[in-house]
Design a protein around this nucleic acid. Sequence first.
DNA 1: CAACTGTATTTGAACGATCAAAAGAGATAG
DNA 2: CTATCTCTTTTGATCGTTCAAATACAGTTG
Lengths: 349, 349
Amino acid sequence: MTSRPTLASLAEQLGLSRQTVSNAINAPERVKPETLRRVNDTIAATGYRPNAAARQLRTRRSRNLGFRLMPVEDGINGAILDRFLHSLTENLQEHGYRVTLFAARDDEAEIRSYDELLETSDLDGFVLAGTHHGDARSDWLLARSVPFVTFGRPWNVSGDDKDCAHSWVDVDGRAGTAEATNYLLGRGHRRIGFLGWPAGSGVGDDRRAGWASALDEALTPADLDALSVGVPDGTRQGAEGARLLLERGATAVVCASDSLALGASEQFRAATPGNPAAVIGFDDTPVAAAMGLSSVAQPVEQAAKEIVDIMRHVLDGAPDEQVPVTHRLLKPRLVLRDGGGPLASPLSS
Amino acid sequence: MTSRPTLASLAEQLGLSRQTVSNAINAPERVKPETLRRVNDTIAATGYRPNAAARQLRTRRSRNLGFRLMPVEDGINGAILDRFLHSLTENLQEHGYRVTLFAARDDEAEIRSYDELLETSDLDGFVLAGTHHGDARSDWLLARSVPFVTFGRPWNVSGDDKDCAHSWVDVDGRAGTAEATNYLLGRGHRRIGFLGWPAGSGVGDDRRAGWASALDEALTPADLDALSVGVPDGTRQGAEGARLLLERGATAVVCASDSLALGASEQFRAATPGNPAAVIGFDDTPVAAAMGLSSVAQPVEQAAKEIVDIMRHVLDGAPDEQVPVTHRLLKPRLVLRDGGGPLASPLSS
DNA sequence: CAACTGTATTTGAACGATCAAAAGAGATAG
DNA sequence: CTATCTCTTTTGATCGTTCAAATACAGTTG
């Protein structure tokens, strides 16, 4: 066994030239079928693999995409990004791409990283999670026409998604909370509260809107107003908010996150012992599963797949081809559990 | 603004040769101080960054390490790997290394990935999580003398770590459960149970051993035997196991995971209403934090740092220098919380 | 038969860095 | 004055691939 085979060594072995072997790999249609077969045979026999660095040097493509790891926050909601990242990696891998991670404390540091990673030319593009409108990061990338797709809408103030200059894939939170609310309506609840975050966050307001739309006919605007509470994310805050909602006569609650739902569920169970809590969370995190909490599940695997599709379109397309900006809104799925904590009996439905 | 600066363009600008500029970057001591200053100035002025691909092609180093994303399991314990990965990325980044992710369904597929990633020569080494003795992966990597460090001991049957042929960093689970048990002893508990997994898993047995050693004097062997329960990981199983322990007179319990602890805590609270549950989990996952559960925290950040240190030693050292195999066992930390779920009152200690 | 067509293959250069060895400039010694 | 040594800088080759253009060859065509 000598050294690793290269194009040149293969070519010599076959009595061909480098370039023909190269063509057999990258542009098979240019090569005579008979030759192609011979080349493929020896490639298989020798286990030849093109050297990534050499290829990258010449083509200026690394088949590597960057993903920024967000600072670990509460970790409950972080779990969903974990699943996303996993799925992203798998999907990209199938198409010969890889994910390179990088960490950054804030958006500014993230941009510095972009610069660095692009300058050394080892990344072809980026996948961003959680952009906001006027996001310095997307602006920076757009200005340099670096390929990127975001998981999450930019939430531009105008509310008009059409003018967004970059592709994104997101989950329709509004549809999710609407479905959750409708489910509770179907179970006979009327005074269904919404436990979310302080107004102003795109995601939060969207989720609230779904709840409000579902109750549009069942409740008066005044009631809607009373039954909507906004608190910072967290279990304790969730319990606090739920207490308020209970005081205002809520018999069920739809939450903007599983953290909130966890706190709320505890509060509801304490208030109405014996009854399974009519609390629905968001994100279907492992905690929700462990606690038997119903929750709205984001189809992160599908999101990752769609993002990869868009990316491939951009990266594998002809160099000058102008790929249209794509926006995809995915429907979440309501996952029903007994809702009463790990030991509660199943719903008698 | 023309095109990206290269060594050659810098050299021309300075009236020097490529190699001198290269030396200024990679071996400053070989360059006259005055020249070095001039070079550094123009590097700063032009924002020059060496092209990673070209460098990689020549040096056969990518400054990229591979990390396999495990299949998402329960996600509760997955959170700890998430933190680890984050810290790993940050630490490597500080030293000019990057993390490339890849997914694999099983060990065999993982090995195929190694092969692929190494052949195309874009990875310098790997960081593995969760190895076991006789692990095909570590054997494969060792046989090819690919640099790698594992997070987790290989748990070889002999129990003798000394003969392990590769470097690892791990957390001393035994010390963790011992500390937890001692804490409960200090609080007046005597019949302290252990809720773990079925015997046979290295990690699980290690954690059980810590509990047993702390109770060595307080309990008879028979009691120890009765107060140790092994069940598959999960909240429901934890509750089930805790029921058993309560029947056998346990007043407190140390668990091998937060999932188990979560179920146990629920069970204990139901059995002794009013009292905060004397349940201690393991891993200090977000769930534990959210539920106010005490737990043994693994210093994953430190583990990541140590792993990076070892890796740097191997990769940045002289090519022929034989780096000694390193084993590091880190002490976990007991994180105390009220233990009574999100709404329970704090301990009246 | 010369001129054209199209297909299949080859050649030389380039990508941007580093390695190995040579060369130039001073200093020191014999 | 030459030889030797050290310090600094330069030269030419090389890593393995792809690009752009050239070549070879067979088949049409007027």
